[in-house]
Design a protein around this nucleic acid. Structure first.
Lengths: 192, 192
DNA sequence: CCAATAAGAAACAGTATGTATCTAATTCTC
DNA sequence: GAGAATTAGATACATACTGTTTCTTATTGG
């Protein structure tokens, strides 16, 4: 009697996209701590089982939403700027901006549930840096000696220190300091 | 009739100590994910309200338990080994061992609840490193120029990268590599 | 057009947090 | 040492969330 509007049902990728969008919006508005599967379902105009049929847990849902809303981290996301220094700076900027999109609440939240997530949840993208270092060696900018992992990881580690530990988005000047004071010298020394 | 043993009641610091010990033991045995206030109460032979009277939330209880079971991080915990290199290595070992006591599960768990915790939850102890650098300057080992924060933080950031991101306890050799390949050269350059 | 699939609704079991209430053990004060 | 104040410990409650089950029905595909 009461006119129940006949509701259209989404399916397949259309539905999946809507679910991930709802999860992302929910994350943005309430942060990781306040994130509930139920709220996502409501926001998407559906119910929890629909979500649980696709992602087995809350943590996996968050991870999927974050992944769907970040650009891919392929090693060639960083253009060749012509110098080691320029490439490193570009890479650090790229990471910083990427992190800015996700935000500390979600990042820390995910870190806290690493127990419940597949190991590869936090892509570290060392490939991007090795690519940059290889480019520099090919240019003849640095030697061709093997650069130890610690040196390769250093710039990313220092950026992460700012972002996660100090809760501070480094400015371009601060990124430049990381590159000039630590990264470039260390790489030059190592690849000698 | 049934002989209810008259139970002694602990109070004050004695009780508090027992609660923190129980929380610590619980963390060690089930990790952060499985940690519940109820289990702590049972382990301590008491009930939840006793815990909530002292710590307003689960997260604060965990933090208190960790703090109570770690040695203080005073800047002079690192003895003067006579050289910048030696001091840095000693500091990195000290931190690594400290982290080993807490473990990744708890560390990540706490990081994930930073939203619910006082900002100062994760003490970063940069004082320890500035002390070491000052000592080296006083020895005449390095110049007296101001060392920028990024350089000071670098060794700790790299260690953290290993521990938290790579889930790997670095060996003494790896710590030595951090010191020799990155920390010492960067500090020497900066303090020139 | 009919069978297979899967969306969406509703309700349930289980478990957790944090609170309120009560009693009795312990300590403090005079 | 008696009585008052404090607070441990027990129990039960309100609330919220996760993940599952069951059922109906819209949609798709052969």
């Amino acid at each position: 009697m009461a006119d129940e509007a006949v509701r259209r049902r989404r399916r397949g990728t259309e539905l999946e996209r809507a679910l991930l969008d709802a999860a992302w919006d929910e994350l943005q508005s309430v942060g990781y701590a306040g994130f509930t599967v139920d709220a996502v379902a409501q926001r998407a105009g559906t119910s929890r089982p629909v979500l649980y049929r696709r992602w087995p847990s809350r943590a996996q849902l968050v991870l999927a939403a974050v992944r769907a809303h970040l650009p891919d981290a392929s090693p060639d996301a960083i253009p060749d700027t012509g110098s080691l220094r320029g490439d490193l700076l570009a890479a650090l900027r790229w990471w910083r901006d990427r992190y800015e999109r996700v935000g500390p609440s979600i990042m820390n939240g995910l870190a806290g549930e690493l127990d419940h997530l597949p190991t590869e949840a936090l892509e570290i993208v060392p490939e991007m840096l090795t690519t940059i270092i290889e480019r520099a060696a090919r240019r003849g900018e640095i030697g061709t000696g093997a650069v130890p992992a610690h040196v390769v990881d250093a710039p990313a580690a220092l950026l992460r220190h700012d972002l996660v530990v100090r809760h501070h988005q480094p400015t371009d000047e601060e990124l430049t300091a990381i590159v000039d004071d630590i990264a470039v010298p260390a790489i030059e020394r190592a690849a000698r």
